[in-house]
Design a protein around this nucleic acid. Structure first.
Length: 487
DNA sequence: GCGATCAGTT
DNA sequence: CACAACTGATCGC
């Protein structure tokens, strides 16, 4: 496989703009000085006025940025020289999914534009970017697999992170998987053959047991240890997300140091990770899921305590209650572990979930699992089952044992300013003998946790990996970053 | 019938 | 009300 990225990839760009996006020239990137207050909206034009063409294009478009190329006639940069010319899309219409047959008025010419077409850009900037992309992709009559977005690639390497749904990625020989959630491993199956997969040992087991990925491609990496892969030092760190989730630190030969957070919940204890405390981070790929001050929620411990005391209180009034906790495949285990602990009861889970939970290799969890619904008043069910009708039916199946259901739906964030600081203000939905609590047990960082993490890490540049699909969000997050990194 | 992708759900 | 993270339906072969 050809290994140089220089011709048409981003890794040859050593300069990054204020947002961590590569710049292709010495365009002025001076600050435009706005401070962000709450929900203020930044006009797109302002954001672009001081950034490179590359960043302009990024801000105004959807998220498929891997197809940016240097304009024809550009020369490969020589040592010490910066590329002078702007980048252009190979084919804006194709990349953004607007085809000949598009129903959009005024977009009938699919020929490769050499310059950005304002009318099209405006459509995207006005918020229809992702919709347009999706619709466009299918109105060809056949859906084209999207190409890997640049923010999943690690510059100066042949590495990608959480990029399995794009088939074989040009110039990528090592595929990192941050954790075992569908939106990150999507594309992995027993047919995977595009390259080596690196992940934690726990994630590796899940790839084998749940997805039947061919073990010859799976390379588990011990956590907290430095590994050398293709001449690059790689360290996985506990991400405080779901079991097996890792932050990934890359240290390149040229001294550059990049941290990809995957999905994570920033915590104070991360400031004690030696590899984070001791290395200057040039570029941070940040899980920006809740990068907005409106997202505020309690610590996990506070939520666990709330769940336990709510359960005990409920049981004191309704001793013959079934306790149900909703959960996706993996994640949120501490919620039912805490209840199990407090009540001294085992945890019922169906066979497929037991298989997954057993594979964690956590003795404390494994020994609490039971396979018979009658063996415990504590059941773990798919989140999709936590609806009144389902739970009512479920209760009927064990009516002789239980009279009521108390269910917890651990979501990332519940829409209520008040419950953020006052858990006891959370009100359940009660219908007949079914009571359902939504609890803000989050495995992503809150806004303030993100801020503290970034202020600690002081990365040179930040690339948001979540909610970066529309220009307004990117502009807003960019302003937060600028504020946090002010000296 | 199967895997990939999209649309819908909580 | 927003989210993450599915799950089920549809599509192309």
């Amino acid at each position: 496989m050809k290994m140089d990225f220089d011709e048409d990839d981003l890794s040859s760009f050593t300069d990054l703009d204020d947002n961590g996006f590569p710049v292709s020239s010495s365009v002025d990137v001076e600050s435009h000085g706005e401070e962000v207050e709450g929900e203020m909206s930044l006009p797109v034009g302002d954001v672009c006025s001081s950034t490179s063409d590359f960043a302009i294009d990024f801000y105004l478009s959807g998220t498929n940025w891997s197809e940016l190329v240097r304009d024809e006639g550009d020369e490969v940069p020589k040592n010490g020289e910066k590329v002078k010319k702007a980048l252009v899309q190979r084919d804006l219409f194709q990349v953004w999914g607007i085809s000949k047959s598009s129903k959009r008025p005024g977009v009938s010419n699919p020929s490769t534009p050499k310059k950005r077409q304002r009318s099209v850009i405006d459509d995207f900037a006005s918020g229809s970017a992702l919709v347009g992309e999706r619709k466009g992709a299918e109105c060809n009559g056949r859906s084209r697999p999207h190409s890997c977005p640049f923010y999943k690639k690690i510059p100066g390497t042949s590495f990608t992170v959480d990029a399995f749904r794009y088939g074989a990625i040009d110039e990528c020989s090592s595929y990192f998987l941050s954790h075992f959630h569908y939106d990150h491993y999507g594309g992995l199956s027993k047919k995977w053959s595009h390259g080596n997969i690196y992940c934690t040992d726990l994630t590796a087991r899940l790839l084998r047991s749940c997805l039947s990925v061919n073990p010859q491609y799976i390379f588990p990496l011990e956590i907290n240890a430095e590994h050398v892969i293709e001449d690059i030092k790689v360290t996985l760190l506990e991400a405080n997300h779901c079991p097996g989730a890792a932050l990934i630190l890359f240290r390149l030969k040229d001294g550059k140091c990049y941290l990809h957070t995957g999905d994570f919940r920033a915590s104070k204890s991360m400031q004690l990770y030696p590899s984070l405390a001791n290395h200057h981070i040039n570029l941070l790929y940040l899980d920006t899921t809740y990068c907005n001050p409106k997202y505020s929620f309690p610590s996990k411990d506070d939520v666990l305590a709330f769940v336990v005391r709510t359960t005990l209180k409920f049981l004191s009034k309704q001793p013959k209650s079934l306790i149900v906790v909703g959960a996706y495949s993996i994640g949120k285990e501490p919620v039912y572990l805490a209840i199990s602990q407090a009540l001294g009861v085992p945890i019922y889970a169906n066979a497929s979930r037991r298989k997954i939970l057993q594979s964690f290799g956590w003795p404390d969890l494994s020994k609490k699992l039971c396979s018979c619904t009658e063996s415990s008043p504590l059941h773990v069910l798919p989140l999709s089952c936590l609806r009144y009708e389902n739970l009512k039916e479920y209760l009927k199946t064990c009516k002789q044992q239980f009279q009521t259901v108390l269910a917890f739906r651990p979501t990332g964030w519940t829409y209520s300013e008040r419950t953020a600081s006052h858990l006891d203000l959370i009100r359940p939905v009660i219908k007949g003998d079914v009571t359902i609590y939504g609890v803000p047990y989050s495995e992503h960082s809150s806004f303030t946790e993100l801020r503290e993490f970034v202020k600690f890490l002081k990365p040179e540049k930040i690339i948001p990996t979540v909610n970066a699909g529309n220009a307004a969000n990117r502009a807003r997050m960019q302003s937060y970053f600028k504020e946090w990194l002010k000296v």
